[in-house]
Each structure stands twice: as structure tokens, then as C-alpha cells.
Design a protein around this nucleic acid. Structure first.
Length: 458
RNA sequence: GACCCCUUCGUCUAGUGGUUAGGACACCGGCCUUUCACGCCGGCGACACGGGUUCGAGUCCCGUAGGGGUCGCCA
């Protein structure tokens, strides 16, 4: 009994799994497409199978190197590596992986269909002789779906597989590619469910057993409407550009239409791979929730190893000036669990890397009020003579002084914070002063004291 | 017009005939606290509707409504 526990997936995937993601280059990677890629990738990694990337670049209008690159870069950014597909030169031996280069393969199959009498020419185009009876689609997510012909299909059941200009259409090339590439599981959006009857008929006509199908629910806007590229959060580029943590996007997307069936929310990639499987996929469409995505991003952001956090900060445009590495890291440590998104970081920790900052006037007006001056001046002298500038020491000293002077702690903290950072919010005061170092803190105190003198006299 | 899928808090979801219907995000209180966060405690808040089946239905069946998808010489 114990021996079989670790290989339970074998029961649902007896043969080596081969899945694919087949995007068309539109100039951006839709979040729904990214999720489809993710589910395929997760299934491949979970089962130890192969993840194939195939570019459906038959639409010459939109087919540009840049558009293809957007997809490749998006997948790489998410960490979804492919075992076969484009990669400088293609990798894998079932290629080519661009449909634009597979014309001969399609032509060969079309000829075979015509020879068998299953396809025929009609007004210059070639139509497939589609069966008129209902087709049952065995779907791993939706169960057996019996697809009847629609009224329009009853008028003309034979659909076009090659246009009159000689170009094969999507349904045909999709099926031929899946067949030729040995795809075992087709995991794709539910928008393809109805069309799957055509695909099954095509597989049979090609003397092939159709692969297993798993149609996953769609991702909708927050108002339930169909998500298009203009909508909030709809394009992966947006999340890339705001320097989100890719693992957070993966984590959030994995929870849309799939559930680990317990209360797990934040999970590392390895755990998602371990737990992901087809039976836990939902049937209902999900709505994209920007707020929860941002929360997920923060959860991953605050747990990032410092080197990666530092790198992300740089990518987000953080200017560290000529600060030493130790100093940079010490500064970032005080920010990492406070900053919600990396794009907020530059403003949040600017004071660490420049002395030339203005005071926030609303803050300064209160912090540098005349009644705070005497205590603050004493705090400066106290700090000047402290043994060291460790947070524990400065905190103890400050609190002791507050008690001695019989003032609230904030009467000392606020001017100190304003003097050091210029703003109301920021890292822990004692931590930030330790990073800044005594000399710098004292200099900033003096600058603040000078200003308090001015306002006191004026 | 036809065909197909779906329907639990605002959102993501758990729930496979008997639960005070659970968790997460969001929102609202409180505690903690030098700020902002975090954390902790608490609150708000859902089984679309109508019929069945059953001792008993969010769970099974039928219908209605609503949402989504598809029916192209787009992919």
C-alpha cells in the first residue's frame, strides 16, 4: 500500500503526458492565455510529462517577431519553460513549432482526406465531410458533453478546412498539429468546448484516437463581462511592467478555476506543481480580482530573498546612488515587509540614499512645533553620546528621555522621524536610524533644529 | 435563431444527503504600535428561483431565470 502512494498520478496518466500551449501572436499575452499556459505547464510538471509550445502564426497580418517575442518573454517571466518549441533555434524533434512552416504537413493530410472521400472542393475551398449525428465529447472537466448540430450547421454541416486562397483553417491545423506532435491532453479554454466536436470528427477521419480534453473555465472581468485586452489586469504586460513578483501571478492564476481543496492560498511554485491535477478544476467561470492579485503579490514580495528583492527594486527604477552593498541591503531589509508593491519603494526609501529631501510640510508643521524643540535638542545630545546606535539602545534611550521629560514618546519620535526621512510614514524609526548611522542622523537632526530655530524666531 | 457550459458571501472558493454552510481577498470595528504595514481578536456577508425525489437537499432530478461560450473561407 505504502509503495503506491507516491505514484497515484499514474492512474490518471498511464502514458507519458504531452501537453501544449498554442498561442497566436497578437502583440500581447492575455491573462487568460497565460492561465491556460500555466495549467498545461503545471500538468506537465506534475506528471513528469512534456510541455510543448507551438506558435499559431498563420495570420500574417499580426505575425511579427515582436508579437512572438511578447509571448516568449511573458512565459519566461512567469517561469513556464517549455520542453519543445521555439528557442532561438527550435528545440524538440516534433517541429517545426511555427504553423507558418508546416504547410506541407497540412497539405499531405488534406490530400489523404480527399482521397478517402472525406473532404471535397466547394467554390474553391475545401470542406470536410462532417458527420450529421451528435458527437459526445468526453471532457475531463465537464464530463460527457453531447454536442448536437446547431440549426445553421444542419443547413451546411461540412465546414471549410482550406480556404479558397489555399490557407488551411484553425480547426484543421490545430488537430493535425496535436496529432503529429503526439499531444495526449488538450487543456484549453472553455470557449473551445463546442468546437471540439469538429476536432474529434477530424481526428477520427485522420484515423487517430483523439487526445483527452480538459476545458477550463474562462476568466472574466470583475463585472462578469468578457475580458478583453483593454480591461484592468487583462494583459500580462501590465503586471510585468509594474514589476510584480511572477510567482505571485502564477499563484493567483492557479487559484482561478482550480482549488487545492483546503485553505491554502499562498503557495510556492513547487507546492502548486505537487498539488495540481485535473480533477480539482472547476467548471464555472471566474472573475479577475485586482485587489486579491495585489495582495498575493505583497505576500510573495515580503518573502523574497534579499538578492531578488534588491534586483526587483533596481528593475523598478530604484536609484541607490553610490551606496555600498551592505548599506543598500540593510536599508531594504527595513522596507521589505512594509512596502505593498515594489513600485512604491523608490519614494518609500529615498531618504536612505540622499540628504537632499524636502520636508513634508503638513508633517513638519506638527513635528517641528516649538513645544517639541527643547526635548528634541536633548535627544540630539543624548544620541551624540550613546555607546552605539543599535535600535535597542536608541529606543531605550529615547523612551527614558521621554519619561524624564514627562512628554509623550511621539513628541520625540515625530521630530526625529521627520528630521531623518522628511515624511510621516516609513520604516521603524530605530531601525532606520541604525542603518543611517549616527553621523548622518545627527546631521539631519541639526538641520531640523536649525529650522526650528528659524520658525521659533519668525 | 440553434447548440453547449455554468449558478454557495461583493470576489475567489470549501462543501460529494444530516454542517451553527468553512476559509481567503475586500470592507468595518478593536488590540498591538513612534508612523505605515504585519500580526491577533471580532463584525458584515451566500446556497438564483420554482417544482419534485427523500425522514431529511447547497448537495440528486426537472423546469425557469440569469451569466458565459459556440455555430466564419478569424484564431
Amino acid at each position: 500500500m505504502c509503495c503506491f502512494g507516491e505514484t497515484r498520478w499514474l492512474s490518471s496518466a498511464p502514458m507519458s503526458v504531452r501537453v501544449r500551449f498554442a498561442p497566436s501572436p497578437t502583440g500581447h499575452l492575455h491573462i487568460g492565455g497565460a492561465r491556460t499556459a500555466l495549467f498545461n505547464w503545471l500538468y506537465a510538471r506534475h506528471t513528469g510529462g512534456q510541455f510543448v509550445l507551438r506558435i499559431e502564426d498563420t495570420d500574417e497580418e499580426r505575425n511579427t517577431p515582436e508579437a512572438i517575442n511578447v509571448i516568449l518573454e511573458g512565459l519566461r517571466w512567469l517561469g513556464l519553460d517549455w520542453d519543445e518549441g521555439p528557442a532561438g533555434e527550435s528545440k524538440g524533434n516534433r517541429g517545426p513549432y511555427f504553423q507558418s512552416q508546416r504547410g506541407e504537413i497540412y497539405a499531405r493530410h488534406v490530400e489523404a482526406l480527399k482521397a478517402k472521400g472525406l473532404a471535397y472542393e466547394h467554390e474553391g475551398a475545401i470542406r470536410f465531410r462532417m458527420q450529421r449525428e451528435a458527437i459526445t465529447i468526453p471532457d475531463l472537466v465537464c464530463g460527457d458533453v453531447v454536442r448536437e448540430l446547431t440549426d445553421r450547421e444542419q443547413e451546411q454541416p461540412d465546414f471549410v478546412i482550406v480556404r479558397s486562397d489555399g490557407k488551411p483553417v484553425f480547426h484543421l491545423v490545430n488537430v493535425i498539429d496535436d496529432l503529429e506532435m503526439g499531444i495526449t491532453h488538450v487543456i484549453r479554454g472553455e470557449d473551445h468546448l463546442s468546437n471540439t466536436a469538429k476536432h474529434i470528427a477530424l481526428f477520427r477521419a485522420l484515423d487517430a484516437e483523439p487526445p483527452a480534453f480538459a476545458h477550463i473555465p474562462l476568466i472574466l472581468n470583475s463585472d462578469g463581462s468578457k475580458m478583453s485586452k483593454r480591461d484592468d489586469g487583462a494583459s500580462l504586460d501590465g503586471w510585468q511592467q509594474t514589476h510584480c513578483v511572477p510567482e505571485a501571478v502564477v499563484n493567483y492564476l492557479s487559484l482561478l478555476g482550480w482549488s487545492p481543496k483546503d485553505d491554502s492560498q499562498v503557495m510556492p511554485m513547487a507546492e502548486i506543481i505537487e498539488r495540481f491535477d485535473l480533477p480539482q478544476i472547476n467548471r464555472a467561470n471566474a472573475r479577475f480580482d485586482v485587489k486579491k492579485m495585489q495582495w498575493m503579490n505583497y505576500e510573495h514580495l515580503r518573502n523574497l530573498p534579499m538578492p531578488r528583492y534588491r534586483q526587483l527594486a533596481s528593475e523598478a527604477g530604484m536609484d541607490f546612488g553610490d551606496a555600498a552593498e551592505d548599506y543598500i541591503e540593510a536599508a531594504l531589509v527595513t522596507c521589505q515587509n512594509k512596502v505593498k508593491q515594489i513600485s512604491d519603494l523608490p519614494d518609500y526609501c529615498r531618504f536612505y540614499f540622499t540628504d537632499a529631501f524636502e520636508y513634508d510640510e503638513a508633517m513638519a508643521a506638527k513635528a517641528f512645533a516649538p513645544e517639541n524643540k527643547e526635548g528634541f535638542a536633548k535627544l540630539r545630545e543624548l544620541f551624540a553620546n550613546l555607546e552605539s546606535f543599535e535600535p535597542e539602545l536608541t529606543e531605550t534611550a529615547l523612551k527614558a528621555l521621554a519619561e524624564e521629560l514627562d512628554v509623550k514618546i511621539r513628541a520625540l519620535v515625530m521630530p526625529a522621524r521627520c528630521a531623518c526621512t522628511g515624511v510621516k510614514i516609513g520604516p521603524s524609526l530605530y531601525d532606520l536610524m541604525a542603518v543611517l548611522g549616527r553621523d548622518r542622523v545627527l546631521a539631519r537632526f541639526d538641520r531640523a533644529l536649525a529650522r526650528m530655530d528659524e520658525s521659533g524666531e519668525g
